[in-house]
Design a protein around this nucleic acid. Structure first.
Lengths: 201, 201
DNA sequence: TGGTACTGAATGAGTGTTCATTTTTTGTTC
DNA sequence: GAACAAAAAATGAACACTCATTCAGTACCA
């Protein structure tokens, strides 16, 4: 019984933290508010996390872990690199849609954190980026994508584009069709942008 | 004499603020540290700015103003949309290179701020984005870029890509060649991605 | 001597974290 | 399965500290 309770409370705290961080931003969030939202005492939080930073880091790591797992599964459906690019884009934006508060926290706080939290190295985020790189590499190997593509630049360009689009959606609260349309636009642009000189798309 | 003094001190405070914010992030920066860096008393800062937020907002607005002016001038050199895309990309990354501390502040703090600072609407930033949109629109009008491009999505995609690449450069402190190479990569990818079906680039 | 620019010590509101205490769970014995 | 004790989990009031902001005073000038 104890282990169930444990996990439950820890999870409730993390869930509450996402909500509160999304609303106020990390620095303007109070531990007391997270505690209230999670329906635990503020001291309880310190049984599960070392300090406030530690809560945020755990939000990042565990969410990204889920996201990566989800994405790997999605990409398993095909081995066509062109289709995989499309699937990646669609899935990323869909994830943002389905976990809006989490999206807000990731987009707004992640940069801050990996710049200023000395101890934090965003391993999972790097792993996520490298999923993109791998797709492009496969495309090159199959002769579909240009050989002179720098994987490092390309993966960042795609991620940056996705991130900015998702950020705009999150902040302006446009309707959901926007994201679907944006996914198609971006997919086409990227695919034509990286294709070798044959017919593509 | 007084007006000279005024302007001078105000500028010193802003310059110091960029430096300190870049080093610590906005929330971990102390007014006292900005004051020390600017060689003024901490009280003096409140003669020029309403509060801490106001300093950051003024950093944004005035820097972006300069950047926009600079970019407009750069783009004046040609009216070929394809070349303009290249120039925009090169110039943006060059700006980040030449004003590294400012780049750090813009990239890391701007998102936070326009999400959480209620009174702040990032007019200048929007204007900057719209420079990109205008280039793409001209390209469409001249039949060089696809008609079905959504300007809203495309401008954000390009900006996001640039921002992510610049962020990576800023944080990892790679050498300067990286940025030049990245600019060429990105320019090619974007131009092929948006081109109509003729030969391009 | 009046006005302006500036100073920096003092203030006090706000908050992450601690820890003495209480509550709940688990294990043991009859 | 009741009664008890030891351990574990949870509580939340109080603490210790930080720092943005203020303002009474100083310096300088015309």
């Amino acid at each position: 019984m104890s282990s169930i309770r444990q996990g439950d409370k820890r999870f409730r705290i993390l869930r509450a933290a996402v909500k509160v961080f999304a609303k106020n931003g990390f620095h303007n969030s109070r531990i007391s508010e997270i505690a209230r939202e999670a329906e635990v005492a503020s001291g309880t939080i310190y049984l599960y996390f070392r300090n406030k930073d530690d809560i945020l880091i755990n939000v990042f790591e565990e969410s990204l872990d889920d996201i990566i797992r989800d994405m790997e599964k999605e990409l398993g459906a095909t081995d066509d690199p062109r289709l995989r690019v499309k699937l990646f884009i669609r899935r990323h934006l869909k994830l943002m849609k389905e976990h809006r508060e989490l999206a807000e926290v990731l987009q707004v706080e992640l940069r801050q954190s990996y710049k200023f939290m000395k101890e934090y190295e965003p391993k999972h985020w790097i792993k996520y980026l490298n999923i993109i790189a791998r797709i492009f590499k496969e495309g090159q190997e199959k002769g579909l994508f240009r050989e002179d593509l720098s994987l490092g630049v390309t993966k960042r360009a795609l991620f940056g584009a996705l991130d900015e689009i998702a950020l705009h959606w999150v902040l302006t609260k446009k309707d959901e069709k926007y994201l679907d349309a944006a996914a198609e636009q971006l997919a086409r642009m990227v695919l034509e942008g990286v294709a070798t000189r044959n017919g593509s798309s």
